[in-house]
């Protein structure tokens, strides 16, 4: 087994989970800050605020998913048979993890800001809740595209 190849695959998995997770944490934090502000004045909006705050959290889940795929592929999970991964294959896995790492990080922060703005919107206009959910969901599209690309690339790598 080529250790460098495995190391690169692990680095890719770590970045996918780490960066997407960090982005989600920042995004959920931004939305949570806004949510706390609104709930101080109107605790009855907890349900709506929670929904909007949770939206930027999905990128972290996507990153974790890709990290699992990557380490499953190189046989580090589940105690399967040892799989040989050369440097080029390891590098390919690393690059395959990048879309969700980068896309997840930035889209989660952007979604957090949009969610925060929408939380402010429902503070003033509770009747516009439907629209308030759609706006941050638009940002989600690009996180999903990053996830899809990472999955397709990982599937395309033959070991």
């Amino acid at each position: 087994m080529d250790l460098l190849g495995i190391a690169l695959a692990i680095l890719g998995a770590a970045m996918a989970a780490g960066w997407a997770g960090a982005g989600s944490a920042i995004g959920v934090g931004i939305a949570g800050e806004s949510g706390a502000g609104v709930m101080t004045e109107d605790p009855g909006k907890f349900g709506l605020v929670l929904l909007l705050q949770a939206l930027p959290g999905t990128q972290g889940i996507y990153g974790l998913l890709i990290a699992f795929f990557a380490i499953l592929k190189v046989g580090l999970l589940g105690g399967g048979a040892e799989i040989s991964v050369n440097v080029w294959q390891g590098l390919a896995i690393f690059f395959a993890c990048l879309p969700i790492a980068v896309g997840g990080y930035f889209s989660a922060i952007a979604q957090g800001k949009t969610s925060a703005a929408c939380i402010q919107m429902i503070a003033k206009r509770p009747e516009e809740t439907g629209k308030a959910v759609i706006l941050p969901a638009m940002v989600e599209t690009y996180a999903v595209l990053s996830l899809l690309m990472s999955i397709i690339l990982l599937n395309g790598i033959s070991l």
Binding site: E33, S34, A36, G37, E41, D42, I119, Q120, M121, A123
Partner: peptide, 18 residues
């Protein structure tokens, strides 16, 4: 920018009572 997230949200909620 984020420092005012809480404050502005709370103000928006308060402005509903104007």
């Amino acid at each position: 920018a984020e420092g005012y997230g809480y404050a502005v949200s709370r103000l928006r909620a308060m402005s509903g009572r104007l």
